[in-house]
Simulated assay, not measured.
Amino acid sequence: MKTPRRLRRPRVLIVGCGDVGLRCVALLRHRAHVFALTTQPERCAALRAAGASPLVGDLDARRSLKRLAGLGATVIHLAPPQKNGDDDRRTRALLAALARPRRRLLHNPSETCRRWLHAGSAWGKRQARIVPAVPPGPRRSLPLVYASTTGVYGDCAGALIDETRPVHPVNARAKRRVSAEQQLRRATARGQIRASIARIPGIYAANRLPLARLERGTPALADACDVYTNHIHADDLAAILVRLTTHGRAARVVHASDDSRMKMGEYFDRVADAFALPRPPRVTREQAAQQLEPVLLSFMQESRCLLNQRLKRELRIRLRYPSVEHFLRTAAQCR
């Protein structure tokens, strides 16, 4: 009997299927069977409507991840680490779930005894009846694409950097990302997976612009003390992540960044102009420390400009929006 076409398609598991994950689903659903891990059962209907098969599970509860074992899927790992500690426990839980062998019960008693006696096992009859579902022998490591962050570099004082720059995480968020990258590199070295790492800067899209911030009049840094930031449109990011599933190199880092080189305040000014909003007031760093929340202020402590040659040369990506300015011109025409 011929295997149904749906079962013959490659499988892709998206872990952390939020806005960017759904954009990945839209790119994959016609050529792969897409699974989406969600912690919220109420999201299952929306995920099905988007073209994904939902799996309810929580990276903070390892027992809920049993269905991932033996799935045999390429993984796009978009889930952020937990909010405390320096170790990314969620990536650790995911790798453990993917590594767990799927087992089945043999229905032929004579075959069970033969395997048990041949192995010379002292485990007993119960253990002898359980064998791996996948036949022994070498297996091809499945790709895993990890959405990391450019925050792992720390402050580079506005320098132009490529992927060979040593990581220097300063805050706990970045340290957890470095932990995840290290775990994935070790799993790749063991042959468990074949991980590719995308280091991602600020993500924007029509639904991810700082319009509320501009309407509130939240200040930006004066140009003399402002920091360089980097950007990527959410659609381009989804295309990069999907491309990495087939063309990413093992343990290789790629900057998922566009060609923009602008300071944070300039970015806010451009968005404000495009949407006819007041430009944000400019303040000194000392004034910002008094007026802004610590989390918001932390993003103003690091400055760097990203090179993206690997993105273009190795993945051969052509960005839909090569710069923020390209997108804003399109957005202004659609208003």
Rank of each mutant, 00 (worst) to 15 (best):
G124N: 06
P101G: 00
K66P: 00
Q40G: 05
W116V: 12
Q127W: 07
R115L: 15
L71V: 04
G72H: 09
L55A: 03
L71P: 02
I76W: 00
E42M: 08
R102E: 08
L117W: 10
W116Q: 15
G120T: 05
A97Q: 04
D87K: 07
N108M: 04
Q82Y: 03
R126Y: 03
A61W: 09
P54N: 11
T91R: 02
D86I: 11
R90C: 08
P109T: 10
L106P: 08
T112S: 13
T91N: 05
T112K: 12
H107E: 14
V75E: 03
L78S: 02
L95S: 00
Q127V: 00
Q40F: 07
G51W: 06
G57T: 08
L71F: 01
T112C: 13
R104D: 10
G51R: 12
L94N: 05
L47S: 13
S53F: 03
V56T: 07
L95A: 06
P41C: 04
D86M: 02
L65S: 02
W123G: 12
R115N: 13
A119Q: 12
A69T: 01
I76E: 02
D88I: 01
K83A: 15
G51P: 09
A122L: 09
T112E: 14
P101M: 01
C44M: 12
A45I: 02
L59C: 02
D87I: 13
L65W: 05
R115W: 07
R90W: 08
L105M: 10
Q127K: 11
A96L: 11
R126M: 11
W116G: 15
P101H: 03
T112V: 15
D86T: 15
A73R: 07
G72D: 08
T91G: 11
A50W: 07
R100C: 12
R92V: 03
T39E: 02
P54A: 11
R62C: 04
R63S: 13
N108Y: 03
L105P: 05
R89L: 14
N84F: 14
R100T: 14
N108E: 14
K125I: 15
A45D: 14
T74I: 09
D58M: 04
D86S: 07
N108T: 10
